[in-house]
Amino acid sequence: MAQTFHQSTNTLSKLSIFGALFLVLGALWVTVEVNRAPYVTQEGVTREQPVPFSHQHHVGGLGIDCRYCHTSVEVSATAGLPPTKTCMNCHSQIWSNSPTLEPVRASFRNDTSIEWNKVNDLPDFVYFNHSAHVNHGVGCSTCHGRVDRMPLMAQAASLQMEWCLECHRHPERYVRPQAAVFDAAYEPPADQLVQGSRLVEDYGIHTRTSCSTCHR
C-alpha cells in the first residue's frame, strides 16, 4: 500500500512543531505591543472638550502659573480642577462676548458644572497623590509633558505601571530642584544623574516599589 504522505512531509511536521513555539511567542509579543500602543493607553490622544481650553495660550503665552487654577496640587491628592469662577476672574472682561466661551458663561450664570473630559485617567485601583510628588521635586511636565505647547490637552505618558515604576525605581533620573517643579519648559541639566542623586538625598526620597505604595 502506498503511503498517504510523501516522506518529505516528515520535515514539514518537525518544522511545524518547532514553528509552533515561535507562533505562541509571536502572539504573546503582539499582545504586549498592542497593550502598549496609544490605541490602548490613550497616550498622545487629544480629548474633545466642551470648551477648547488651550494650555498653550494660558501657560505658554500668558505665563499663568499652574497653581493659579490647580490650587490644591501642593496640599492634596488631586491637583484641583478650577471652578468656573476661576475662568470668570479674567473672562468677565476678556473675550466676554466670544461664542466659544458661552458654555463657561452659562455655567457661571446657572451654577452648573462644565463637564470636562478627564485626560489623565488612572485605573481606580491606583492611588496617586499630587502633593507627595510636587513637594519632592517631581515636576508637572515630567508626567504631563509640555502642556505649554498643547493647544488641546493630550495625555503625555502611557500611565502604565512600567512607566510609573521607571521613576519609582530611578527617581534620580527625573527629580528637579523645588523651584523648577512648576516650570513647564524645564530642561534637565547635563549632569542630571549627579544633581538628581543629591536631590533624592535632600528630599529623603526612597525608591518606593512595594505594591501597597500605589495599590491600597
Binding site: 491628592a77 480642577l81 458644572s113 463637564e115 478627564k118 485605573p123 481606580d124 485601583f125
Partner: peptide, 13 residues
C-alpha cells in the same frame, strides 16, 4: 471592572 469601579473619585459625576 476594576479600572472603572462604581465609586466616586473627585469630580466624578
Amino acid at each position: 471592572d476594576m479600572h472603572d469601579q462604581p465609586k466616586f473619585r473627585p469630580y466624578r459625576p
